[in-house]
Structures are given as C-alpha cells and as structure tokens.
Write a protein that binds this DNA or RNA. Structure first.
Length: 588
RNA sequence: GGACGCGUAGCUCAGCUGGAUAGAGUACCUGGCUACGAACCAGGCGGUCGCAGGUUCGACUCCUGCCGCGUCCGCCA
C-alpha cells in the first residue's frame, strides 16, 4: 500500500495522455497545508518549462484528463488546480476507509512484500554494523552504528528482503599483543580469566601502563603479536579466551538494547586473515597495486588532486603486515562472492568516509565488487560534549554504554514510582526497562545528521515531548480503551467510517507507513520512521481529545469505527517501534 | 595545502526528486484533570535558513566565491 505510487501512476498516465513524454516525473508529494489537499502533483510545472508552454494550461488538460478516469475519481473526491500549476489532490474518505479496512486485516499491515511483483525483486542485503573493538568495552560512541544498523536491518526484513548481518568486530591487531601478555601473567598468577576481564576498560588501562613503563613488557607484547599471527597454539588459546569473554560483554549490551545481533552474525577481522595475502597477490598480478617505498600501495587516479597526484591506498605495510584496507577489500569479495549480496551497507563514523570510498574504487577495479552490487557506506558524525568539542568525561575518559543504559533504567524507575506507586517490583522493573532503553534509542535514532552530534544526558534520558515514552504512552492509552470497553481488540469491527478531520488525518498518515519504510531502506535513515511515528502518535492524541469513543452520547457505528481506527493505530505504532527495536507495553 | 561534512528559533533538531505562509520538541508565558490514562491537550512567544552573488515562474534545497566549525589525507582501525 503506497498512496504516492498509486497517484504517481494515475498522474503519469494522464500526463502521457495529454501528450507529455513517458518519462515525465509527476513529482507527487504530501501537501504541507490542509487547503492544498492531502497530496499534490507538481510535475506539470517542470514539464511545461521543458516544453516552453504555459504550465496552467497544461495542468488544466491533465486535470481534465484525470476527470475521465473513474478509478481516479474513486480515489480522490476533489482535485484542484492552484498557483502556477499545482494539482492538489483531496483523497476520498470512502476510499481511505476501504484501504484502512484492507490494511487492518493484512498480517503485514498492508506492506507490500518484496518479490510479490516482478518489478519489486527481493534482494540479498549484507549489513555491516556495530563492529565494536573487542579490546575495550563498548562506549556511547558505539550506540549509533549498533542501533541504526539494527533498525535498517529490521526495516529491510519487514519489507521482505533477505538480510545477512555482519558484525565486523575488531578482534585482531597489534593491541592484542599487550593484552594477551598481560592476561598470560594474570593467569600465571592463578587468576580466573572471567574475573580478570570483568572490567575490560580497566584491564586495557593496566596493560597499557605496563606497555609504556615496565621494562621488557613492550618487547614481550610484540612477541605475542608475532606468535598470534604465526598461529602459535598457546597464544591462540589465550586469544580465544579473551575474545570469548569480550564478546559476552557485547552480547550483554545487545540484549539490553534489544538489538538482534547474535554470535552467528560475528564475522570479525580475524576471519579474513588467511585471505589477506591472496588479496595483495591478486592486486599485484592485475597491476592494480605496486611496490612503493617498501610498502604495497594502490595509486588511485580517480581521486587525484588538482596537481594530478593520485590518492594513495596502502594494502601492505613495509614490514609485511596488513591493514584494515586489506581486510575491507577481502570483506568486499566475501560479501559479493560468497554471500551473493545485491547490496552492501556499512555503518561507521564519518571519519572513515575516505577510506571506504577508496575501498570501493579498488574493489570494483579488482573485480571484487561487480557493478551490479550496491556499496553504501553510511557515515554518521562524532559524538561531541556539551561544549561542542570532542566528547570526554571530566577524567578524560569515555562513558561506557552499559553505564548510560543502567542510568536510563534507574531514571525511568524513579519516574514510574512517582506516577504509579501501585506497581509491583516486577512490573516496575519490566516497564522501566522498556521506557528507559526506549528513550535512549529514540533520542539517538531520531537524529539524521551525518555531522557531529552532541551527547547530553538530559535529552538522552528525557521522557517528555518527542520521545519514545510518548509513543509508548499513545500505545498504552489505546490498550486502556480496549480494556475499559471490555472488548478484545481482535473482535473490533472491520469497517471504517472517516468523517472528522482528525480521523481523516489519521487515515492518511496510517496509509503512509510503507512510503516511510521505503525511504528508511533506500536512504538508511531511521529518523524518518521516528518522525513518522511521532506524527502518528501526535495525531492520535489530538483525535483522542476531539473525538470521544466510549462516551455515553457516541453512537454505536461511530464507536465501532473509532475503535477500528484505534486498533490500526496501535498495530502500526507497535510494528513501527519494533523496527526501531523499541518495546511497547499494555500499561505503563 | 587538498578532499569530505556541517552552519535553520535561546537550546536540541526536522525540512523528501527545487514548490505555495520554513516546522517540531524544549525553555518561557496562558488556559485545560470529581479523568475513554495530564508521561497529555489547546494557545502564545521565538527565525535576515552563516554571508554574497548566480540559475528560474519559484531556492533552506542546485551552482560559484567567501567566512566559521569539524574530520580525513602512505604504513592504527
């Protein structure tokens, strides 16, 4: 169900019928003012410009043509020509009611399943997100990649695409030398690995201090790196222990965050290790890479500066070591070749934008990434402090993600205790978790900026205004109505009667779910869904005040229709929040 | 120096392929609970969309130049 598409088809047909070229863009958009209808077609003005004709006359012809289409007249009860050539479309309440009824009985809420038509094929989409560094604990900076990626993944799946999650964890590299040397010493001193690594941040700090200050430790650390890469059994065992425990830390966070990543989705950097020499060999054999100053590099002419100097991309260090450039190239080949991706999406911070641009160019040149495979690096900004400078705590450290999430739940608990003192501890815990975590996620997901964003405890943990609790509250209110009415929401009437402006606004909004979902998928911007759900909830609140449902003087037919509307709103809110990984509850 | 990103209300942010009078939240001010749940609603205040040009019926949106901030730019990821 996609109103925009339906209208686009109709307007296009009318445009062609009056003699405009087949490829004329009807330019359908949602009207931003009630007097301009629900949707508007702006394409005539652009077309008139190209043909150098009068836009109003052309628009008149298109409108006349539309009037001949009985099916269109069924959809729109009024079309108006306005201004220089706007065509304003007022959707017919009767048509909206029919669409709502169909949407309400559909198990997918009217969302077209990919693959159901020949032009809308199912794709295999590889999504690379979260990718924490296993040497350290996850901090607030990992929030974005993790939850934005997860939301896009869920949106893709809801639409019917095949998604392969890839958690490209940082489980390899020189820093593991010092960590393993330190872990080895601890185990020698009869410490248990789980205990020693219970606080990863602290463990890292200890190891770093020894690396910087303790005689001989740095050398041992370097030895461990060599041993690890050489496949030494003891060292590998030590490494495996470290990785396992660190992964558990991440899994705890994923669970708290209600993120769908599992162990099966992990494809860490180490997994590409054996392939790296082959990647470099192949690049050399194809003449793409060359030796330069002892290293193996690719000179990228496509990204040359004005002086004609190519951009440099190192794939092997002068000492023979490999870099993340090599790993990412290998990942390209694996994802398009082995995983058969039609599209690859990568969520990392914006600092890596240049790197991924280089990866794409080199991978395409080397044939690791066919032209038919989409490669979308989706960057986001750094986290800044309240002063607008790179974010640091007072002590110069980072805020642990676990700490933020715990704080959110604590604050939610306090608020609920205040508002609803009667809840049992069990209920309280349950609700506080959903509200607190939801608030944190929504605060982040609702921002689109690819630029830096400001981390602020207050806005992060806010429960008022455009926040997750607002949406959860709207949902709970609806459930409360069904409780009060003593009806199971399954037994609600299936017909809608759209009369009041508040009802119509809700009807149109409800039917726009798929449009929003598609935008989220193509642009990788869950904030559009956040905006949509907030608007939907907000319209519901207005409707709730203006249109009584269970009051004495409401006729049964009106009541039934409004209950049906409530039901569909609740389902849409729940489904939409689920895409964002935010939970709903019957009471809060 | 070069590349990329950003600059919208006091603050945090929306603004879709160029469209009509630039929108929310928050803060502040006015109203609304013997209740279909006030974590809410109705209303008010608040903007030279960084600056200057250009393209056109129309520019927050596209182009050029400048100013400011940030990030990246051959051996970390």
């Amino acid at each position: 169900m996609n109103i925009k598409q339906i209208l686009a088809k109709k307007i296009s047909a009318a445009m062609v019928a009056v003699g405009l070229p087949e490829d004329t863009n009807p330019a359908i958009s949602v009207s931003n003012r009630p007097q301009f209808g629900d949707y508007q077609a702006n394409g005539v003005m652009g077309a008139a410009k190209k043909l150098k004709t009068n836009p109003r006359e052309l628009a008149t012809k298109v409108v006349e043509q539309l009037a001949l289409d009985d099916n269109f007249n069924n959809i729109a009860d009024k079309i108006e020509l306005a201004g220089p050539g706007f065509i304003n479309i007022h959707l017919a309440p009767s048509w909206l009611a029919t669409q709502l009824a169909q949407t309400n009985i559909d198990k997918n809420l009217g969302i077209t399943q990919r693959g159901s038509t020949p032009t809308d094929k199912q794709q295999t989409v590889v999504v690379d997100y979260s990718a924490p560094n296993l040497a350290k604990e996850m901090h607030v900076g990992h929030l974005r990649s993790t939850i934005i990626g997860d939301a896009v993944v869920r949106a893709l799946e809801l639409r019917g695409d095949k998604v392969i999650r890839q958690n490209h964890m940082g489980d390899w590299g020189t820093q593991f030398g010092m960590l393993l040397a330190h872990l080895n010493d601890k185990l020698q001193a009869n410490e248990v690995a789980e205990t020693a690594l219970s606080d990863l941040e602290n463990f890292y700090r200890e190891a770093k201090i020894r690396f910087d200050k303790e005689d001989g430790f740095a050398d041992r650390a370097r030895e461990y790196v060599v041993k690890l890469q050489g496949g030494d059994t003891n060292c590998a065992k030590l490494w495996q222990q470290f990785i396992d425990i660190s992964i558990k830390h991440s899994e705890d966070i994923y669970q708290k965050l209600n993120v769908t990543l599992t162990r099966a989705d992990i494809m860490g950097e180490s997994a590409y290790n054996d392939d790296l020499p082959k990647v470099v060999e192949e690049l050399l054999a194809k003449g793409i890479a060359v030796a330069d100053q002892g290293a193996i590099v690719v000179f990228i002419d496509e990204m040359a500066n004005k002086a004609g100097e190519p951009s440099v991309f190192i794939v092997q260090k002068s000492g023979g070591g490999y870099l993340y450039a090599t790993t990412d190239l290998s990942a390209c080949r694996y994802r398009s070749g082995k995983l058969n991706a039609d599209r690859i999406i990568i969520f990392t911070d914006a600092r890596q934008a240049l790197h991924f641009k280089q990866v794409e160019i080199v991978a395409r040149k080397a044939g690791f990434l066919p032209e038919s495979v989409g490669y979308d690096h989706c960057p986001f900004g750094m986290m800044m402090g309240n002063d607008g400078k790179p974010f640091k705590t007072r002590t110069g450290g980072t805020i642990k993600l676990a700490e933020l999430l715990d704080e959110a739940v604590v604050r939610a608990t306090e608020l609920i205790k205040e508002k609803k003192p009667d809840y049992s501890d069990e209920q309280l815990t349950e609700i506080a978790k959903k509200v607190g975590i939801g608030a944190v996620k929504f605060a982040d997901l609702s921002k689109n900026r690819t630029s830096d964003y400001i981390f602020n405890w207050k806005t992060m943990l806010s429960f008022e205004g455009a926040t997750a609790p607002y949406l959860q509250y709207a949902y709970a209110r609806i459930q409360s109505i069904f409780n009060k009415a003593g009806i199971d929401s399954k037994d609600v009437a299936t017909s809608f009667n759209i009369v009041q402006p508040q009802e119509k606004a809700l009807a149109v909004k409800l039917l726009q779910f798929e449009e929003v979902l598609d935008a989220v998928i193509s642009e990788c911007t869950p904030n559009l869904l956040c905006n949509y759900l907030y608007e939907l909830a907000s319209l519901y609140m207005t409707f709730y005040e203006a249109c009584p449902i269970l009051k004495e003087d409401v006729s049964n037919t009106v009541k039934q229709s409004r209950l049906a509307l409530c039901q569909l709103i609740a389902k849409t809110l729940k489904q939409g929040l689920d895409v964002l990984g935010i939970e709903t509850m019957e009471r809060m």
